[in-house]
Design a protein around this nucleic acid. Structure first.
Length: 425
RNA sequence: GGAGAGAUGGCCGAGUGGUCGAAGGCGCACGAUUGGAAAUCGUGUGUACCGAAAGGUACCGAGGGUUCGAAUCCCUCUCUCUCCUCCA
């Protein structure tokens, strides 16, 4: 949620920001509602003050004519307040609704662009492996070894579900443990194991609702929503709290399953395990002081990169242009690893700075040590560190041998009890 | 799932219709005292919105109702605790 004061005081700056996004938003309507709400509020507050004054007076009076008159006056004021109440509540709700649907404003450093074609590849890290044979895509490797069972996944859960088996499942588990160990031991994150189902307000807090409900699964009878990412429960951990500035930055890492409806056109990304309705992810979430959140974003990105560096998987860093920024993000960088079998870059991480956009929606503030009495919103950041299925693809395809067996990356060997080669010829 | 009890400020805890944004204590901050500290004493100490300020408005789990007036009365919901039941 953007700051209504900012819109009120610098409407042209806000308008320019949304134009860079290519978003068409009716700011006039918002400003109109805001002005109307302020009028109604001030009118209502004046009446309430009058009501309070009368009530106190009545309290002091003894029973009698005067007291009855004062009571009658009180009834009249009460009627006026009630007459205003409907319009006040409706205006407040209408403004809230509009504000919740406004996207975040882009950070000045974000390049202007209309869509993903104008994203900027900042750098490529690591050397793509050269093969003296044709590398197989992971779906062939997975089927050959019996470690990815697509047919049975579809049988039990439907399309876009699969089953990992044997050392395929173990490889994924090794990757999860490796990532959690790396972030907790080397990068200073505290591990969180959150619920996978959350209340609606959590999703409003992160920006998934009210606009993107069609991407989410939910329980039909109760207010339970399946998380599309650990970002949702972990960001909401401190909802409605005022933190001490000395507690910042807070760094959390969480492993969870993620659930997404993925109502995209049939036929896209249907092959393999690249995109499913359920997938695992290790997620990094930070709550930081607003003055250095962009530096914190760089650090977060570097923490995510370390996972790929450790695994010795080549990747590239892509900066999102304004047109490809997500709803809640003010700046965003993606990490894409190279999958030699299917011959494409795969997005395995998305690291964003949300500024105070989510903090405002979740009311996460901190007491600023510098300015006494001033409570400010924290900045929230998060990034995948990393998404499991695609990292698994990267390992399978990059570490495959000509005979189809797969080498265990050095950093994963501690999790494999001495095994260094997976599969049989 | 059944029965009962409860939800007040950072924490504990008083408050059953008016002068209560809320006693008291703890904690915390600042000051006094001290060579320094402990102890002691004094002052201060919730959040949001409106206002240049003075000040005003709202909030005592949430929502609704009664009343001129609600932390206090009524209704609904949520959550917590105890006992029983069940269970990984």
């Amino acid at each position: 949620m953007i700051d209504i004061k900012l819109l009120r005081e610098k409407p042209d700056d806000v308008r320019a920001g949304f134009e860079r996004l290519g978003a068409s938003v009716d700011l006039e309507a918002v400003l109109l509602l805001d002005a109307r709400l302020r009028d109604l509020k001030s009118e209502s507050q004046t009446l309430q003050a009058e009501q309070n004054r009368l009530s106190k007076e009545i309290g002091r009076q003894a029973a009698g004519e005067e007291r009855e008159q004062a009571k009658a006056a009180g009834t009249a004021v009460k009627a006026k307040i009630e007459a205003l109440a409907g319009a006040l509540a409706a205006t407040e709700a209408a403004l809230e609704e509009k504000l919740l649907e406004l996207p975040n404003l882009p950070h000045p450093s974000v390049p202007t662009g209309k869509d993903d074609s104008q994203n900027v590849v900042l750098r490529e890290e690591g050397q793509k492996r050269s093969f003296n044979f044709a590398p197989q895509p992971h779906w062939d490797l997975g089927t050959k070894h019996g470690i990815i069972d697509f047919e049975r996944g579809v049988k039990i859960s439907g399309s876009r579900f699969y089953v990992l088996k044997s050392w395929g499942a173990r490889l994924q588990r090794a990757l999860i443990t490796y990532m959690l160990d790396l972030h907790t031991e080397k990068h200073g994150y505290t591990e969180i194991y959150p619920p996978y189902m959350v209340k609606r307000e959590c999703l409003v807090g992160t920006g998934n609702l009210p606009k993107f409900g069609e991407n989410l699964y939910r329980d039909a009878e109760e207010d339970f929503w399946f998380i599309p990412t650990a970002e949702v429960p972990v960001t909401n951990l401190y909802r409605d709290e005022i933190l001490e500035h000395t507690a910042l930055p807070i760094r959390h890492v969480a492993f969870t399953a993620c659930f997404r409806r993925e109502q995209m056109a049939a036929g896209r990304d249907t092959r393999g395990i690249k995109r499913g309705h359920q997938f695992d992810k290790v997620e990094l979430v930070k709550f930081v002081h607003p003055d250095n959140s962009m530096d914190e974003l760089s650090n977060l990105l570097s923490d995510a990169e370390d996972v790929l560096k450790g695994l010795e998987l080549p990747y590239r860093v892509v900066q999102m242009c304004t047109g490809d920024l997500s709803f809640s993000a003010m700046a965003k960088f993606d990490l894409e690893l190279w999958a030699p079998g299917q011959n494409e870059w795969l997005e395995v991480s998305s690291c964003s700075n949300f500024g105070e956009f989510q903090a405002r929606r979740t009311r996460i503030r901190f007491r600023d040590g510098a300015e006494k009495g001033k409570n400010r919103f924290v900045h929230t950041l998060n990034g995948s560190g990393l998404a499991l299925p695609r990292t698994l693809i990267g390992v399978l395809e990059t570490y495959q041998r000509a005979d189809g067996r797969v080498d265990v990356p050095a950093v994963l060997r501690p999790y494999f009890g001495g095994i260094t080669i997976l599969g049989s010829t």
